[in-house]
Design a protein around this nucleic acid. Structure first.
Lengths: 327, 327
DNA sequence: TTGTAAGCGTTATCAT
DNA sequence: ATGATAACGCTTACAA
C-alpha cells in the first residue's frame, strides 16, 4: 500500500540514492531534480519510513520526558507547565518531544518506560523526580549511556539536574506570615515535600511548632487536611500548602468554615501555576517558574547531548514569593 | 557502545534468531534458554533496537494524538483530561501513546506533524478538531490510509469521530437560567463555539437577544469580555461561558464589579474540568466528560485499526448540566 | 529446539 | 550530479 523508495525511484526513472538525497539537507543534487522529486513525492504519496531512515543513520532525533502521573483523572497543572516550557525551548530545533507519563507503583508501566528509554527511540531524556521509579529510570539511562537530566532531586549528586529551591521558597512564605503578624502557622503537604516543611518551620524556630497535616495533590486532600487542622488547632491563622491545588481545597474549606481570607486565615500555595492568578481570591503562591524549569532542563539536556554525555553541574531555578489576595 | 543482537548472541554462544525468540511472545524456544537469555540481557546491557525491530516486522505499535495548542504558556485543562482518558483506555494494551501538540498557524509545526503522521511511526491517530490544521491532518491521514478518528467536528461527515453535543449543552444551561427566573442572558465565547451560542440563544427565542462578547480560552479574556458586557448591558443577570477558564475570569470580574454570585449574576461554564468542583464558589458547568471522550476515541480507533481502517459511525458522548454554587 | 539466511526501507560510501 | 552497493539491527520462514 505505502510505496517505498525503490518503487518511487523507479517510477521517476531515478535511483533510490538520488531520491534519498532530495530529502536530506546536505546531499549534493541538482536543484531541478530535487524540486521534481519533492513535487512528485506528494502526488505519488511517497514518504520516507522513519524506522528505516533512523536505522540507516538519517532520521529525526527525539528527546523524551518521563514523569510520574499521580492521578488518572486529574491533570497535573504543574507538570503541564513544565511540558509547555520544554516545548517552547525545543521549537525550531528539529527535535521531537515525546512525553511519557508513568503511574508510580506499576511495574508494568515502568517496564514500558524502560523499553522506551533503551530501545534507541530517544537520543536524550528528561526525568522528573518524585517517585522511586524516577530514580530507577535515571539510573538506567545513565548506565545505558543516554544523556539524561533530571528535574528535581533524584539523588545526592549535584549534577545533571535542574533543581528547585523548595526550602527557601517555604522560608520566604513563612517569613512573610511572621512579618505580617501571624502567630499560629500550619503546613499541609506530603512526604515528597519534606524540604518545604523544614524551610517553613525554620522561620518559627523551636518554640512555635508548625501545625501539620498530610495532603496529597488534589483539592479534596486540601479540604480534608484543613478540616483536620481546624478541628485540632482552631487558633491557626496562616497556612502554607505544598502545591496550589491543595491550597485551592484549603481556601474552600476555610470558606465553608466561615473564616474570612485573608483576614482570619492567610493562605500561600506552592508552584504558582497559571491558574493561581485567575482565582477569586487570587492565590498567593511561591512561584517555582515551571515553564522556565522545563526550558532549562531542555537546555541542559541539549548541552549534554552535544558534548556526548558530559556531566554538567546542576542548575537551580530561583523561587519567588508572589503576593496576591489570599495573604 | 550499545551491543547489538549479534554481539549478544555470540557472547551467549547462541544465534541471533534464538535471542530474538526469547523476547517475542510466540517464538518457540525452551523455557530454560529463554530465562537465561532474559537474565543475561540485563547484565550484558542488551536491548532490541526499536527501529530495527519495527522495520523487520516486530516492534511495538504506537498511536498518536494531535491537538491544537492555543497557548504557549497556559496549559489546556480540557485537553489534559482528554489525554488522561486516552491513557486510561490504552493501559495494558501494549500500545504506546504519543501526544503531538501543534500551535495553530505555524506551517513549520504542521510539517512536523505531517512527518510524524506519514513516517510510519504511528499505526493509528486521534486528531482533535478546532483549527484548520486539524482538518488538514485528518485528510492527510485518511488519504495515506492511516486509521484515524477525530474528537470534535472535522467536517460534515458523520463518521470516524467522537462528537460533543455543544448545542444541547448550551440549551440546557439556557433553559436552567430561564427556569430560575433570569431575564437578561449573556454569552461569552469564540469563533469555534458557534453551536454553543446557537443552542443558548434557542432557549430565549427572537424576542430576547443574548448579549455577546468574544472570549478566547484564558481567564483574562473572560475578564475583558465581562467588563465589556457589564458596561454595555448592566442589566445582565446570567452568563454562559464557552469554557470553564473563561468562566473563571467572568466570576472574577463580577466579584471586582461588586456583583454577588449567584444572586446578582449566575454563571455556567463549559467542559466541567476537574478543577470546576474545587473552586470557591464551585463552578456550575456543562460537563462534556472529557475523560470519557478520550477513552471513547481510543476505543473507536482500536476498532478501526482491527478492522483495517473500516469506516465507523460517529459516536456522541452526552453532555450534562452540573449545578454547583455559581447558579 | 535451534541455526541459517533473506528480507524490512533507508542512508552513506564509493564509483562513475 | 547520479548510480551501485554495502551496511544498519532485527524478525521470521525454512531448514536442520
Amino acid at each position: 500500500m505505502k510505496p517505498n523508495i525503490k518503487q518511487f525511484a523507479s517510477y521517476l526513472g531515478l535511483s533510490p540514492a538520488t531520491v534519498s538525497r532530495a530529502f536530506s539537507r546536505n546531499g549534493r543534487i541538482s536543484d531541478a531534480t530535487r524540486r521534481r522529486i519533492l513535487d512528485e513525492a506528494d502526488r505519488f504519496g511517497y514518504h520516507a519510513n522513519i524506522h528505516a531512515a533512523t536505522l540507516a543513520g538519517g532520521g529525526r532525533q527525539a528527546v523524551g520526558v518521563f514523569f510520574p502521573q499521580w492521578s488518572a483523572t486529574e491533570p497535573d497543572y504543574f507538570m503541564s507547565e513544565i511540558l509547555l516550557g520544554m516545548g517552547r525551548e525545543l521549537r525550531g530545533r528539529h527535535l521531537a518531544l515525546e512525553s511519557i507519563p508513568f503511574p508510580p507503583g506499576s511495574r508494568d508501566e515502568v517496564e514500558l518506560c524502560r523499553e522506551q528509554l533503551l530501545s534507541g527511540a530517544l537520543s536524550g531524556a528528561v526525568i522528573v523526580a518524585g517517585s522511586v521509579e524516577s530514580k530507577e529510570l535515571f539510573a538506567l539511562a545513565a548506565q545505558a549511556g543516554i544523556p539524561v537530566v533530571s528535574i528535581g532531586r533524584i539523588d545526592a549528586e549535584n549534577r545533571n539536574a535542574v533543581r528547585f529551591d523548595n526550602y527557601r521558597g517555604a522560608f520566604l512564605a513563612g517569613k512573610y506570615f511572621r512579618d505580617t503578624g501571624r502567630k499560629f502557622p500550619a503546613y499541609v503537604g506530603g512526604v515528597l515535600d519534606r524540604r518545604k516543611r523544614e524551610g517553613f518551620q525554620s522561620v518559627w524556630g523551636e518554640e512555635i511548632p508548625v501545625a501539620f497535616a498530610v495532603g496529597g495533590a488534589s483539592a479534596d486532600h486540601g479540604i480534608r487536611a484543613m478540616d483536620e487542622l481546624l478541628a485540632a488547632r482552631p487558633e491557626i491563622d496562616c497556612v502554607l500548602a505544598a502545591n496550589d491545588i491543595l491550597a485551592l481545597g484549603i481556601v474552600r474549606c476555610a470558606h465553608l468554615a466561615g473564616r474570612a481570607i485573608p483576614r482570619d486565615l492567610a493562605v500561600i500555595g506552592f508552584d504558582d501555576v497559571a491558574l493561581a492568578r485567575s482565582l477569586t481570591p487570587a492565590l498567593s503562591s511561591v512561584s517555582l517558574h515551571p515553564g522556565r524549569v522545563g526550558g532549562k532542563a531542555v537546555e541542559l539536556l541539549l548541552l549534554r547531548m552535544e558534548r556526548d554525555g558530559m556531566e554538567i553541574p546542576a542548575e537551580q531555578v530561583g523561587c519567588e514569593l508572589i503576593l496576591r489576595e489570599t495573604t
